[in-house]
């Protein structure tokens, strides 16, 4: 599996580590209700198909990436910088 880092180009899977769902980018606002935090921290969809994940390019540029990946085929569909996705 290769991930095309927007900064470094196509790189081997071993340069990256995965953190989990990109839902982590959507942090609740300050003062949000507990159920919202519960959702943010614990509750995840488990889709069979395209799924947005957070990956860290530890063996390269050190950027956080949002990788859209098909969990049934491992095909990488899209890679973006998390910093650009967030704003």
């Amino acid at each position: 599996m290769r991930i095309t880092c927007p900064l470094c180009g196509a790189r081997d899977l071993r340069e990256f580590s995965v953190t989990g769902s990109a839902a982590l980018l959507n942090r609740p606002e300050e003062g949000a209700e507990l159920p919202e935090w519960d959702d943010y921290l614990h509750n995840r969809d488990n889709p069979a198909g395209p799924s947005d994940e957070l990956w860290y390019h530890s063996g390269g540029c050190g950027a956080w990436l949002v990788v859209r990946r098909d969990t049934t085929s491992h095909a990488v569909l899209d890679v973006r910088l998390a910093s650009e996705q967030k704003t």
């Binding site: 470094c8 180009g9 063996g59």
Partner: peptide, 18 residues
């Protein structure tokens, strides 16, 4: 390293050394 050095500056692993 698997790098192919297509750019002037590249980050990667030299075996296990960043």
């Amino acid at each position: 390293t698997p790098l192919t050095f297509e750019q002037d500056a590249e980050r990667g692993m030299l075996m296990h050394v960043p």
